[in-house]
């Protein structure tokens, strides 16, 4: 797709794109290429000399159990976040779609948690489940469930999943509701006349028609759980207890900034870039929201 009518000027377009390009090169392309270079280097203990070590940093990553563990934790975390946020949002959206005139009121009541930052979501749920001052932790103890997410890895994972999924429900709800409202009324009516009840209509007509939205949201939710949940982890568990919630993004931060392992952190960055690029390509290919120029 091209414009037929354009302006003629040799210098102006370069001046216009310059700010965007300067920022992109300085803060995106240069750092990303540095990560790539770093990932093939190893520094000595004093940081004075570095040697080219081919794929040693990557080999180190996959040789140790720690990185694979972090991968496993990330997969559990992201599939649980996506699963929880998608199913709750779908239920609420189907209900809101049925609620007709009051749908807009419910919409307002449901979409606002999206505006809450992941780290703040972390603080909110951390407070509720805090073993010493948390209300929910207190009631669970009374009910006989000993809650302490600072010691119990499964409980820690459950908590970060709830906190991360909580704000994503709003996002999914918005897209599901839009998808539902786009389904032609006549399809549903025709099925109703043929005697299909609401349950049957949902699974045979509505759900299949919603599948593009569903697929799109699955990818978006996984990207969210992989990359935007650093704040949730940092506020609630700091990757613990005993690495039970040490997701990849948290680990790359921890190894780079706290443990100062440059080569290892760079190799992890490169792995993450591969994940993001794969997910982006999948998203563009399957959803046919192709970019034209």
């Amino acid at each position: 797709m091209e414009k037929r009518v354009v302006f003629k000027n040799r210098v102006l377009p370069y001046i216009l794109v310059a700010p965007q390009i300067v920022v992109t090169v300085l803060f995106f392309i240069w750092p990303a290429s540095q990560a790539l270079v770093q990932s093939f280097l190893q520094e000595d203990a004093f940081g004075t000399a570095s040697a080219f070590v081919w794929f040693d940093n990557f080999a180190d990553l996959f040789a140790g159990a720690e990185y694979l563990d972090s991968f496993r934790v990330t997969l559990t975390f992201s599939s649980a976040v996506a699963g929880a946020a998608l199913s709750v949002a779908l239920l609420l959206a189907v209900m809101a779609d049925r609620a007709l005139r009051s749908a807009t009121v419910y919409k307002t009541l449901i979409i606002w948690p999206y505006a809450v930052a992941p780290v703040v979501a972390g603080v909110l749920w951390f407070f509720l489940f805090n073993p010493t001052v948390g209300m929910l932790a207190f009631f669970m103890k009374k009910a006989g469930l000993d809650w302490n997410h600072t010691l119990n890895g499964t409980q820690a994972m459950t908590l970060v999943i709830i906190a991360a999924a909580w704000r994503e429900i709003s996002y999914n709800f918005l897209f599901f509701l839009a998808g539902l409202q786009a389904i032609p009324h006549s399809f549903i009516e025709a099925a109703a006349i043929d005697g299909a009840g609401p349950w049957r209509r949902f699974w045979t007509i509505v759900f299949p028609l919603l599948s593009p939205t569903m697929f799109f949201l699955i990818v978006v939710n996984i990207v969210y759980a992989f990359f935007d949940t650093f704040g949730v982890i940092h506020a609630i568990t700091r990757g613990g207890p005993n690495y039970a919630t040490n997701i990849l993004v948290y680990k790359v931060f921890n190894d780079g900034f706290i443990n100062l392992d440059l080569g290892g952190s760079a190799a992890q960055s490169v792995m993450l870039m591969i994940v993001v690029i794969t997910l982006t390509v999948v998203q563009f290919r399957f959803i046919e929201r192709k970019v034209h120029y």
Binding site: V6, F7, N9, R10, L12, P13, Y14, L16, V17, Q20, I21, T24, V25, F28, I29, W30, P31, A32, Q34, A35, Q38, F227, D228, F230, V249, V252, F253, G256, F257, L262, S265, A266, S269, L272, M273, V276, I277, T280, V291, Y293
Partner: peptide, 27 residues
């Protein structure tokens, strides 16, 4: 505008879509 590096710039900007700050923090 039509200018020589147009497509190059377009792709440079497109790439930033794929690289959130979380994956390249240290550099």
């Amino acid at each position: 505008f039509r200018f020589r590096l147009r497509i190059v710039f377009f792709w440079m900007i497109f790439i930033t879509l794929m690289l959130p700050v979380e994956v390249r923090i240290l550099p």
